[in-house]
Amino acid sequence: MAYVITSLCEEEKAGECVAVCPVDCIREGDDQFYIDPDVCIDCGACEGVCPVQAIFYEEDLPEGEVLYLEKARKFFTNT
């Protein structure tokens, strides 16, 4: 499992999550930040610092935001 950055990041793109990630698994894309689901250790540090509450544990993703997990997977496959 992993944490996922959702659509709310597209408007904000604040970046506090990058600074607190102990495994450096968050990268900035053109439209938002992304968490590498294969590297994320599920610590939750990013979730607590997000000013717009755009980060959710994979199993707790709101309906309509599930596609952001696949979007992150594609981002890290193409980088």
Rank of each mutant, 00 (worst) to 15 (best):
M1I: 06
E12V: 08
C43S: 12
D42C: 13
V66N: 10
Y3V: 09
S7Q: 01
L67N: 07
C9R: 00
G29R: 13
T6R: 05
P62Y: 06
V18E: 11
A2Y: 01
I5W: 01
E47I: 05
C40F: 02
P62K: 05
G48F: 05
L67T: 09
I41V: 15
T77W: 03
E10D: 14
P62I: 09
P51R: 10
C40Y: 08
E11T: 10
I55F: 04
L61K: 00
S7V: 07
T79D: 05
L69K: 13
G15A: 00
Y34H: 15
A19K: 11
Q32T: 01
M1H: 08
C40M: 09
D60T: 11
I26C: 13
E12L: 01
V39S: 15
E10P: 12
M1Q: 05
G48V: 07
K13E: 04
Y68I: 03
E58L: 13
E58R: 13
K71Y: 07
C50T: 06
F75W: 09
P22I: 12
D60Y: 01
D30R: 15
L8I: 05
V18K: 03
A19W: 00
G29W: 00
I26N: 13
T79Q: 12
K71P: 07
Q53G: 10
L69Y: 02
N78W: 07
V52G: 08
A19D: 14
P22F: 11
C43A: 12
